[in-house]
Computed example of a mutant assay.
Amino acid sequence: MMDIDTGIDDSLELLYLLSSPDAEIVGIASTAGNVPAAQVAANNLALLDLCRAPEIEVALGAAEPLAIPLRTTEDTHGPHGIGYAELPPSARTLSTLSAAELWVERVRAHPGEIVGLCTGPLTNLALALRLEPELPRLLRRLVIMGGAFNHPGNTTPTNEWNVYVDPEATKEVYDAFSVAANRPIVCALDITETIEMRPDHLVRLAERAGSLPVERVSESDPAGARSAASNPIVRYLLDAVRFYFDFHHHLDLGYLAHMHDPFAAAVALDHELARVRPATVDVELAGTLTRGATVADWSGMWGREPNADIVVGTDPARFFDRLIDRIGEYARSVYPPATH
């Protein structure tokens, strides 16, 4: 069960899961975050069209966080959340259930079977917990992309974006999952900012897909450059990720893009990709400078049991090999190269 605020790297997460034979997406909750919830939902439906995917239930999430106004980040992800890419509106229809209701319906129907994957603000999951307090026991496992522990924030000096958008929801989720048999796995900025996509990765992906011409995006490309790739999925990726490269480049981080959300998806499918350390996590809601900060008690000073397994190590090259193989092969299968 995905809960996602699509989003450039979120869209690669969706592609990764669609391309993974060991994944079955049982539902997609569209969460307000990178862009408003209605745009997130539209992006999800359009991406399913692009991938010629079977029908997957997509639900519209809450329009606003639990206690504060919504803040979005089009400067990071583009006016529609997918960078320079453009996708036609989908004819697919949204679920009649809200995102919170879809969470509850799915876990009740499949107790102990579903892995939840949250890569946006936790608003919808918090609302689902209010509807079904047993949700932590009904899920097989929860994987979260969010937070920053021994690492600077990417939104304020102490805040990661997903938590910043709805810190109250984040705290409700961590408090509720203190009773879960399997602790949530948390992919925070400490690890996801080591997952650096670079132009070479896109070259390799295009080659794997058999897409021509094989293009290399660069900071020296003219403004408004767009891909001419023959494969529509590769063309989408180049136009979306180019915006993300440009954003990071403008922040003097290099011509690269942090692939926060696809990494969390990979961990959800294969926990062996991640080295974890248990900790008790709580969220600061009152601090003048630190509101929204995620705080980890690594050594038990609070006297509370750990409620999270925080990812502290991985092999980024291994992750990218897997992402390139899966999405590249998937793009080739959905849009086979022309033969002459």
Rank of each mutant, 00 (worst) to 15 (best):
L139F: 08
Q39V: 15
R204N: 11
F149A: 00
S20V: 10
W302C: 11
R108A: 12
E193V: 03
L212F: 12
L129G: 08
H249L: 14
A279C: 10
A176Q: 05
A286N: 12
L205H: 02
A38R: 13
S30Y: 02
L323P: 02
S90Y: 05
S227N: 07
G78P: 06
L47W: 03
N307W: 01
A67D: 15
P54N: 11
R204Q: 14
L202I: 09
E196W: 05
P65M: 07
R130F: 04
E13F: 06
P89E: 09
S218A: 15
R71S: 14
A42Q: 13
L238A: 10
L323M: 15
V143L: 06
T72E: 02
R304L: 15
V312Q: 03
A67L: 12
T123V: 05
L15C: 10
N43K: 05
L289A: 15
D261H: 13
P167Q: 03
Y335T: 08
D200V: 12
I185R: 01
R235M: 06
I25R: 03
P111L: 06
P121M: 10
R108G: 06
R326T: 10
G300N: 07
I28E: 07
P54W: 00
L205C: 09
A91T: 15
A206G: 12
P306D: 11
E24Y: 04
T96P: 00
D49N: 08
S333F: 05
L251M: 14
L212I: 14
A59E: 02
E329W: 08
N150K: 03
P111N: 11
A188M: 05
P199W: 07
R108F: 02
L14R: 04
P152A: 10
A67C: 12
R208V: 14
N307E: 11
T194F: 00
W298Y: 11
T170S: 15
A180W: 04
E207D: 11
H340F: 14
E64W: 04
N43R: 05
I25C: 04
R208W: 02
L253H: 13
L135Y: 08
Y84H: 14
P89M: 00
A67W: 00
P184E: 09
G300I: 07
A180N: 07
P213S: 11
V104P: 01
P278D: 09
P232I: 11
L50R: 04
A85T: 09
A180Y: 08
L17V: 09
L142K: 04
A29H: 08
H201M: 06
T192E: 02
M197K: 00
